[in-house]
């Protein structure tokens, strides 16, 4: 079981949280003018990296707030947690945090 540091509540066991999958996926600004392939990428295609992964978590049985986390998927080590809306701490200078 992971020990996850909620930015609002501090370290708590994983069973208090729900994982919301990959973070920083931007919905196309103009969906009506997005082709099928691009829409499929937005809906379904995922980075799924073996290494540091940016993902969303919900502290469902705590403060009930969403936040982002960086976690190494090869080791399950939590690297960092950060506020929803903030860009990735390890790539902060890139637009959209990616």
């Amino acid at each position: 079981m992971l020990l996850i540091t909620c930015p609002h509540c501090g370290p708590r066991p994983e069973i208090e949280f729900r994982c919301g999958g990959e973070a920083h996926i931007a919905r196309p600004a103009d969906p009506a003018n997005v082709g099928d392939a691009a829409w499929a990428h937005y809906l379904f295609y995922r980075v799924n990296p073996k290494g540091v992964h940016a993902e969303r978590w919900l502290h469902a049985h705590g403060c009930r707030r969403w936040f982002n986390a960086l976690r190494d998927t090869a080791t399950d080590r939590m690297v960092a947690t950060y506020a929803m809306g903030a860009s990735r701490p390890d790539r902060g200078k890139l637009p959209g945090g990616r």
């Binding site: 079981m1 994982c19 992964h53 993902e55 998927t73 090869a74 399950d76």
Partner: peptide, 12 residues
């Protein structure tokens, strides 16, 4: 519930 390549999961 999370993406992982660690070939082990949570005991719960």
């Amino acid at each position: 519930q999370y993406v992982s390549y660690s070939q082990q999961g949570g005991l719960h």
